[in-house]
Design a protein around this nucleic acid. Structure first.
Lengths: 356, 356
DNA sequence: GGCACCTACTAAACCGGTTCAAAGGACGGG
DNA sequence: CCCGTCCTTTGAACCGGTTTAGTAGGTGCC
């Protein structure tokens, strides 16, 4: 028997094995299959390990043999830190982390270099792609590595699970709500549609080129409802500002409210944008919903707390996170596509248009 | 030369090496030290790899040799999913993730089993302990493994970095603000102090036994200010409710407001609790700050958006996250203790006590 | 007393790479 | 023509374990 014991001073499993004159397999078993050892030997092994300052098998090495790291990866298409300023993303993360917790998995947030440097080497068993599958390096890295993954809110991809909502229907219900109330002059607040740093009023071509499937679908939903009500979509101004967030919403709304005739209702593609619009309305001295109705999308917690409370389209963010994680854990226990329900939540930010 | 090529069908580095009749070292170099190979050979290696469907060195194996995983761990003492419902924690996470992004590191969220099952095997190079170092399994696992770590908001520990704020001074400034305004009947809204599921009015013994250093320090800060103003601390009721969050704040405040004489000002140990108190005031038909003043702690974004905007103690959550991460990346480039500034932000939720 | 069967433990292959010392060959200078 | 250098490439050790097939020794059964 010529194991190596302590090489370079590090205390490894072999060190312990040598100290006891047993094989490395035995020490390994003491940790991983205690029942395979006699109680006496097991205690001796564990005792000696403690004395030697050995804190158990190196997880990396164990993992290499076993082939599983017990971790779920999450990639996001903006820098990961942006996710933390988007309440919807935070809820989604919460859902994912609930499952990870329950399953004793680590949750690995992957961002880093645009070339997917981190994604290429991240130690994970599977990946949730909370993004619209931009064909940038991150996803490519995941696919190349052959890791199982699920796409959330993006397009369906071969060999990948899918979780999403019916964005089109949700958007349509928001628009229909306003139209039913009698509004005829609408405006739309959009998130960044194309990654070119552009700001302004969006024409149809740009709408069609929107990078995110969710953005495109929501626009189509609005459009279908507007046209179904007999109005021209081209008469509905769509504003886009950078960066994504409340301030962008405020500026978009300001631009729309400066138009004459002024819109009487705004469709925001997210609650963050809608909350910005609320601020813009206050800036302009308009009362909501007296002078202006506003509908959001997402139903984040702040929507209900807003003044007035925001009418919005609810989607189950946490549930999306949970489903995505579960889809990866039990690939075949369930359909690999999940379309979660959306629901219009009417609160206090919408009402009939002003008398005139 | 008798490498093994394709074993079990998996395409490994050896497969590629064999296909080309070169050594594994050469293939490895093609990926990790391209400059050491002639351009011709390098291209041949990479080309063959592509043909064979080899997507580059297995990160796990590479990592085992190198000893570095390029990932930072984060442990939290509640289930990780709770962190996502605490806006202060979310900001902290954002700070950490900014640094990770910049350094091309993955960020690993560690929760799972109370015994630290996940912490014991998580694949990380170092750990941020965003918690008060409860002596539960998670931290023990980290220490056993000999991983470098930094404690945030907790006690100073040997061989560990530290990031925090002056909780005591921050709390004292909040209390002093109210006392300066002329308030004499105060009440305190506390987060859960001891992990025993208890709810009610907290006596001094329980205050001293508070599990979290930050909780203890904030209480001491309040106390010092109160006593410095010549009042008795024992006359200030401290309420504790479960679980941590806005609803707990609402119920704590309701309890305090039911007292006779009624407190004219509330000190909330966090903004979440303060926002709950705002709701409780509305429930009770009290105007803020006319009938009741409220001071929070944290200055989360929602504090400024509240109605009325919340007076609170600002602490730099994101900066805490950044510092913690940087401390681990450059252990000696900087002092291993960081005490960040706090600052009272006076907004609209505080004013003089009602005339009578 | 002989044989099948357990139990407890071990040897050796394996996981999939990285790295370092050294070897082979080309090249330039004297 | 010989020698020292530089550039490529390689063999072999190493990272720190897990696992499988198999061996020694004891037990139960007839």
């Amino acid at each position: 028997m010529e194991t190596d014991g302590r090489r370079g001073g590090r205390v490894t499993l072999a060190t312990v094995a040598d100290a006891l004159g047993v094989s490395r397999a035995t020490v390994s078993n003491a940790y991983n299959h205690p029942e395979r050892l006699s109680a006496a030997l097991r205690d001796r092994v564990l005792g000696t390990a403690r004395e030697l300052g050995y804190s158990g098998p190196h997880p990396l090495a164990a993992t290499l043999s076993r082939g599983r790291v017990n971790a779920l990866g999450l990639v996001y298409d903006d820098p990961m830190s942006f996710a933390f300023s988007d309440p919807a993303a935070v809820l989604f993360l919460q859902g994912v982390s609930e499952v990870c917790e329950h399953e004793d998995l680590a949750l690995v947030l992957i961002s880093g270099g645009p070339a997917g440097a981190v994604a290429r080497v991240a130690l994970v068993d599977a990946v949730i792609c909370y993004c619209d599958v931009p064909i940038d390096g991150k996803l490519a890295a995941i696919v190349d590595r052959g890791l199982p993954f699920v796409v959330v809110d993006g397009p369906r991809l071969p060999n990948a699970g899918h979780v999403g909502i019916d964005d089109r229907r949700g958007a349509a219900s928001a628009a229909r709500h306003l139209l039913d109330l009698g509004h005829t002059r609408l405006g739309v607040l959009a998130m960044p549609l194309v990654d070119d740093g552009w700001e302004g009023t969006v024409d149809q071509d740009r709408q069609d080129r929107a990078r995110y499937r969710a953005s495109r679908e929501r626009l189509i939903g609005y459009r279908e409802a507007v046209e179904a009500a007999g109005h021209r979509w081209s008469a509905v101004p769509v504003e886009e500002r950078l960066p994504y967030g409340r301030d962008a919403g405020r500026r978009e709304a300001a631009a729309l409210l400066a138009r004459r005739p002024r819109p009487t209702a705004l469709l925001a593609m997210s609650d963050e944008l809608a909350l910005g619009a609320l601020a813009a309305a206050a800036d302009a001295g308009l009362s909501v919903p007296g002078d202006l109705s506003i509908v959001g999308f997402d139903d984040v917690p702040a929507a209900a707390d807003a003044h007035p409370a925001l009418t919005t389209v609810r989607q189950p963010h946490r549930e999306k996170g949970r489903r995505a994680a579960e889809l990866l854990l039990r690939p075949h226990a369930t359909a690999d596509e999940h379309r979660l329900p959306v629901e219009l939540v009417v609160r206090a930010s919408t009402g009939p248009p002003p008398r005139r």
